[in-house]
Amino acid sequence: MDLSPTLLTAAMAVAFSLVHLFVGRLRFLDVEPRSAWLSFAGGVAVGYVFLHILPELAAHGATFTQATGVSTKLAESMVYTLALAGLVLFYGLERAIVVSRDERRSQEGRDRPEHGIFWLHIAASSTLIFVVAYLLNHREDPTLAGLALFFGALLLHFVTADFGARADHPELYDRRGRWVLVAATLGGWVTGLFLELPELAIGCLFAFVGGAIILVVMKEELPEEAASRFLPFLGGAALYSALVLSEVYLVR
């Protein structure tokens, strides 16, 4: 085993874990109107959706065609159906959080969702994080620049996603929720070292997780209730787009 890439992806998994552990300490994010840093991270995350997730979903359609022998059109439909399933599942969880929170606010005066709903959300987020950490060791783009772009976009995405999850129930998140996310991160990375799934299975996982990430990005990075800052958002999207285009046309 080549230790250099292993140590690099290990450092990235640790960085993801540090976000899960210490996002509550980033007090400068908890401001109104929405923090410029969160808006910047939102721009980067949306850039990641359009410049990485959507093109990779299309690329996995070819993998489905080769593995199953079905037509290209049907294979692409299968990939996007899995992505849709991921998006719908996470949308359902987000709605459950909102409904539970509203019910407790009206009945008990507590601005918190039910514990069971919160833990269901943490379990789903952990599954997503596990797959992302697994893919650190199984990226389709093996270049250092490609891995760096993947890491940077997901790191900023986890900042905003964890910030939003913690806002739902700070006590439970700080007590145990963040440790569950850390375990999922490190567990996914370790699994990626010793288990190499077939390309078809990786394609299925990526499609499902891709749909979930699209929903989480749009929910957290394009909020309706918070006054998001357009210029930092635009700056994040423009910077990430420029880096991707540079990697595609200059590095390769």
Rank of each mutant, 00 (worst) to 15 (best):
I97W: 04
G92I: 11
R104S: 00
Q107A: 09
V79Y: 05
L82S: 10
R112I: 15
A96T: 00
Y80H: 14
R110Q: 08
S77G: 10
M78W: 11
E94R: 09
I97R: 06
R95H: 14
S100E: 05
E76V: 07
Y80D: 09
R101C: 07
S106T: 12
I97L: 15
V88H: 15
E108N: 10
R95Y: 13
G116S: 09
S77T: 08
Y80V: 07
G92F: 15
R110L: 00
L87D: 00
S100P: 13
G116E: 07
G109H: 02
G109T: 05
S106I: 14
V79G: 02
V79D: 03
R104L: 11
E108C: 03
T81A: 12
E114L: 08
I97C: 09
R105K: 15
M78S: 09
E94I: 02
L82M: 11
G109D: 01
P113T: 10
D102H: 07
R112S: 07
L84S: 15
M78Q: 12
S100I: 00
E108G: 01
E114G: 15
E94C: 01
R104V: 01
E103G: 04
G116L: 13
M78V: 06
D111R: 01
P113V: 05
A83W: 01
V79N: 07
D102V: 12
L82T: 07
G109E: 07
S100Y: 03
G116V: 11
E94K: 00
V98W: 12
R112P: 01
A96I: 01
E108M: 06
V88I: 13
E114P: 03
R101S: 05
S100C: 12
R105W: 08
V79M: 07
